[in-house]
């Protein structure tokens, strides 16, 4: 288990991380969300031991992170880079060797990653000759070639085309099934929502919310419903509710946010009385909705 308790980091007079806390159980896929400059990368660097926290504690399975622990961690930084003149195969093998994997295992794993990431045909080419997407795939292989127990990925989807993003999602799914604990930071909310089981939203170096998607939804202040058809009589009924707000409307249906105290049964009776209702569906807020609301409310 990774435990981050009141982690703090200052750079001179700038407080990059004020107080961040969360725990990640083994095998969890964890999404670390926040706007630019929220302290996500600094938090990740502290977890990896690249930066030393100025306050708080970070432990992995009860022990402080040290050089030995770091060997079982993997990291894909936001700032991407490769040795341009080094061949793809050598690059992946180099990072495997840095983590203590020796021959013949390293050759086997390197070949496995080249195949898994569809890099066949590029393995003997210098990294500089690869496209940006393929370079990113090489970096993923470098970060995971040693089968880390904890893999931290900072914006892993940025710069990937949809096909490669899907491939990466599949690879991360495989790693999760293999028991790797994943920590991801991304602005691609739909991908995080598909992949992650737990989340932490940070802003200005502080936790704003943490938990599963269900936990985050519990804090959602409104109930969202989608009603078909979205005709004028239906709108009249909905607009009569104190605190109700129209979210969207199209030719077919209308979506409204209703106050939590709204009696759903009474509402449905009123709607049926004025219109032939084809569908009355509660709509769960997406991760993106939750994120935007949480960030917005933190600014108030």
């Amino acid at each position: 288990m990774l435990l981050v308790e009141k982690a703090r980091k200052d750079f001179g007079k700038v407080r990059a991380v004020a107080e961040v806390s969360f725990s990640i159980a083994d095998g969890t896929t964890f999404g670390l969300l926040g706007p630019n400059g929220a302290g996500k990368t600094t938090t990740m660097r502290m977890i990896l031991g690249i930066l030393t926290p100025d306050g708080g504690t970070i432990t992995w399975n009860g022990a402080h992170v040290d050089a030995r622990t770091r060997r079982i961690f993997g990291y894909l930084p936001e700032e991407r880079g490769l040795y341009g003149k080094m061949r793809v195969r050598d690059h992946i093998a180099y990072f495997g060797r840095l983590r203590g994997i020796t021959e013949p295992e390293i050759s086997r794993r390197t070949a496995g990653w080249i195949e898994r990431l569809a890099l066949q045909g590029y393995e003997d080419r210098p990294c500089a000759e690869l496209s940006k997407g393929n370079q990113q795939k090489v970096q993923v292989a470098c970060a995971a070639v040693h089968r880390p127990e904890l893999l931290i990925l900072d914006e892993p989807f940025s710069g990937l085309d949809p096909v490669n993003a899907e491939m990466l999602l599949a690879v991360l799914g495989d790693l999760r099934r293999g028991g790797t604990t994943l920590v991801l930071s991304s602005h691609e909310m739909w991908q995080l929502e598909r992949l992650c089981t737990d989340f932490c939203i940070v802003a200005e170096g502080r936790n704003l919310a943490a938990g599963t998607l269900a936990d985050l939804r519990r804090g959602w202040p409104v109930h969202r419903v989608r009603i078909t058809p979205g005709t004028a009589p239906v709108l009249q009924v909905l607009e009569a509710i104190d605190g109700a707000r129209q979210v969207e409307r199209d030719d077919r249906c209308v979506t409204f946010d209703l106050p939590p105290a709204t009696d759903g049964s009474a509402l449905l009776r009123s709607l049926v009385a004025v219109e032939s209702i084809a569908a009355f569906e509660p709509v769960e807020p997406s991760l993106r909705d939750l994120y935007l609301r949480i960030i917005e409310s933190s600014h108030r």
């Binding site: 770091r70 961690f73 993997g74 930084p77 700032e79 040795y83 341009g84 840095l98 470098c142």
Partner: peptide
Amino acid sequence: AEEKTSRIAELLVASVD
């Protein structure tokens, strides 16, 4: 400088002391 400017430094730093 090559490691720094090619941005491979952080990957290295995470991999090795």
